[in-house]
Write a protein that binds this DNA or RNA. Structure first.
Lengths: 276, 276
DNA sequence: TTGCTCCTCACGTCACGTGAGGTGGC
DNA sequence: TTGCTCCTCACGTCACGTGAGGTGGC
């Protein structure tokens, strides 16, 4: 195809370090055009530069090598492009996330104890409900994607012709989800009839619970401040946590479309407390 | 201060996993308010939630723990805020960088072999020059910051009253910079007089060289495509590389302020070539 | 001959995650 | 008694980087 060059030359043409190139050879991501049997010297073909540059750019975006391999090795051009577009989409979502985190951090550092409008705790007894639910083990850093997809799926099933969207969105989070960084999350929407449960969705019974509830107003990125405030109150009153934490997603107030309103509910029972 | 809670409760209040909390204890970043001598059980104080949340946000932004520790432990509030502001600045620069990489990748995938206007190679003999220079070992991923700071410093020294900015900006990159991912980079600006060399800047002699030159027009993110094109030509003609690669930064054409114009020069000598 | 480029192990890094195996209090 | 929460090792992960120690061609 082109000309054979040494690993050093190829490194300078691609901005990939020699160590990286050897590593890519080891895992079979980018094989030299030729390897000298006697010396082990690698020779690359200049026609390999294009692939190398694509690899470098994906790595700059922190795409895992496993995934880079899939993209580069994809036999089908359509599948390859779909994978790339999907990844770039997620990159853009992550950029938004980073921006939010920066904003949230700035706010936190400027005013460590923000005076939110709804900081008081209410107690509420909820009865068991039938609901259409999607329940899966989810990793914490994948929650936002999972959450959006799950409620999209539920809404599609619940808004079939003639059936208006009932109830409200909510979710259960097992303790493990927070403590281990992954655990069962159940996205659900209460129902009265019997909708067609298809795909991941199933009809389940959400158990009754006694909840300590605090309302969060703001972005998802700040939700932990409400967990902290609610958790502190629960701890001060010596209340134990019994079962998964709940979140109820309320419709936004008119004129505050960008603000989330979330009721966070900790299921409680009375304990002897923890001696200081 | 507040109430003591178990590591599990504290995990739920801060969104930090139990494993992460134990790790932060191990390295002394976030020590539990109390540790039971008999059982080893950790107890956290609810007043520690604020620090924990700041730590989590910095980690979400991938700040290294070492640096998080510095920020959190900073005795002086001014120093702390400066460190934070500096980091957020770099985050924003990185966001720009990511956007550029995404754009560059898109372009690369749409048209793998772009027909740039100035793709031809010229040969040029440059004579030795006296220059004001800043020369340091630089890591590849820190190059952009270093580059901007170095030329800022040089320009400041060269535009003292009565002395106009002479010559043009240029830099030398040792082979090691590309091959190992870090190496000596020398930012320089040719001079005629004898300016006050202060700070990192010193007067040096830039050696003569015979160069194969290609002009790059576009962003820094795409510069590797020009390296690839130039490197290919040099390899095809069986020319060896002798000494550091040069870049000359040309003033932008009027009406193309956002486009960089960079002459890339590979110092060459004639070889027997590499047998295919 | 010397310096340069290239090679292969083997181990280190970073921030935890993943079990294994075990304890303490309701 | 059982299940739950917590504990401490020890090792794994990911994408290379960091030496050590050695070879081959000009």
């Amino acid at each position: 195809m082109g000309v054979l060059v040494s690993i050093g030359d190829f490194s300078r043409m691609t901005y990939l370090s020699v160590k990286a190139l050897r590593h890519y050879h080891d895992i079979g991501l980018l094989k030299p055009a030729q390897v000298d049997a006697a010396t082990g010297y690698r020779s690359y073909d200049t026609s390999q530069i294009a692939i190398a540059q694509v690899i470098r750019r994906f790595r700059e975006l922190d795409m895992p090598l496993e995934q880079v391999k899939e993209v580069v090795d994809a036999p089908d051009l359509g599948a390859r492009n779909r994978a790339i577009v999907a990844y770039l989409h997620r990159m853009e979502a992550q950029l938004d996330h980073t921006r939010e985190t920066v904003a949230s951090l700035r706010a936190l550092l400027e005013d460590p104890t923000p005076s939110q409008p709804h900081r008081e705790v209410r107690y509420r007894t909820v009865v068991a409900t039938r609901a259409l639910a999607i329940s899966e083990r989810v990793y914490m850093d994948e929650l936002e994607d999972w959450w959006a997809a799950a409620f999209d799926e539920l809404h599609q099933l619940l808004t079939t012709p003639g059936r208006p969207l009932p109830g409200q969105d909510a979710a259960l989070y097992e303790g493990e989800f927070f403590e281990a960084g992954h655990g069962r999350v159940t996205a659900f929407a209460p129902i009265t009839g019997t909708p067609a449960s298809s795909g991941r969705a199933a009809v389940v019974e959400i158990p009754a619970a006694e909840l300590a509830v605090m309302t969060h107003t703001g972005s998802f990125a700040d939700l932990d401040t409400t967990y902290a405030a609610l958790g502190t109150v629960v701890a001060e009153r010596a209340l134990g946590v019994a079962g998964p934490i709940r979140e109820y997603y309320l419709p936004a107030e008119p004129g505050e479309q960008h603000m989330q309103r979330i009721e966070v509910g900790w299921p409680i029972f009375h304990t002897a407390g923890r001696k200081p």
